[in-house]
């Protein structure tokens, strides 16, 4: 059997190719922006920092979508499904490598955005431990957010793939599209139904977040939301693994 850590490392390296492309593009765009600002005598450190943040956001969204597609693709690919590991290990390796790669991306982005925002950041007067708290909790929150997103997307894809096994060939295209939309709507309904009561409890417990916003409340709420998303990810993993083991096959 293939060693799981070796598999994670290999998949991590594979995914990092995309990370490096996006980071390279971010740096290139920043350089072009900087040159353009200098040439037009319009350099403004705050505008530059804001633009860097926007580029970073676009990069993160692109990476999120690219990884979602990559994660999906693995379930129906002979290249990955034929690797001698159990389905649950392949599932874990796929998600863990994506998370590790995303963290690597976020760290590179923090460095780039930090460097391009040195001047505006020097005016921020928050204690180091609070800044560190924001950074760590923000990182955890981002990781959980993308992980929950990928797990949802994975469930939709696996359900669609499973149902399509029972459809005749000529209806596949049309019905697959309909099923995708139906699954997406269904997930939104489930989410809204389940989110409301939990959201109300969180609101009551941590209402200062929405008013005075003390740093500790923000950090605490970020962590609580992350825990909630972790639970969601665990819950969604159960049907995902079942479908993967018993119904979803390579194309």
């Amino acid at each position: 059997m293939t060693n799981t850590s070796v598999l994670i490392k290999t998949l991590f390296k594979e995914k990092n190719t995309t990370v490096h492309k996006i980071i390279g593009l971010h740096v290139l765009t920043l350089l072009i922006t900087l040159i353009a600002m200098i040439l037009e005598n319009e350099f403004n450190s705050i505008n530059f920092a804001n633009l860097s943040l926007v580029y970073g956001g676009i990069g993160a969204s692109t990476l999120f979508i690219r990884f979602a597609l990559r994660i999906e693709k693995m379930w129906t690919s002979n290249t990955y499904r034929l690797i001698p590991v159990s389905e649950s290990r392949l599932y874990a390796a796929n998600f863990l490598s994506a998370v590790a790669s995303f963290v690597y991306f976020l760290i590179l982005e923090v460095i780039i955005i930090g460097v391009s925002s040195i001047k505006p950041l020097s005016t921020v007067k928050l204690p180091t431990h609070i800044l560190l708290g924001y950074f760590v909790c923000g990182l955890i929150f981002m990781i959980m957010l993308v992980l929950t997103g990928w797990t949802f997307n994975c469930l939709a894809h696996l359900i669609e793939n499973t149902i399509s096994n029972f459809l005749p060939d000529k209806w596949q295209g049309l019905l697959q599209s309909l099923l995708y939309v139906a699954t997406f709507i269904l997930l939104l309904i489930i989410l809204s139904v389940l989110n409301n009561p939990i959201g109300t409890i969180i609101n009551k417990l941590f209402s200062p977040l929405y008013s005075a916003s003390t740093p500790l409340n923000i950090i605490f709420t970020l962590l609580m939301t992350s825990v909630f998303m972790l639970l969601w990810t665990v819950v969604l993993t159960i049907p995902n693994l079942y479908l993967l083991k018993h119904w979803v096959e390579t194309e």
């Binding site: 059997m1 293939t2 060693n3 070796v6 598999l7 490392k9 290999t10 594979e14 693709k73 690919s77 002979n78 290249t79 990955y80 034929l82 690797i83 001698p84 390579t250």
Partner: peptide
Amino acid sequence: SFSHQVDDVNRSDRLEKIAHFYEAVYP
């Protein structure tokens, strides 16, 4: 060992890089 295990490799990669992938994931 099934010949379709090479179906979904990145076709823009060099052959030696693809071979490294197989070396890593197949003991």
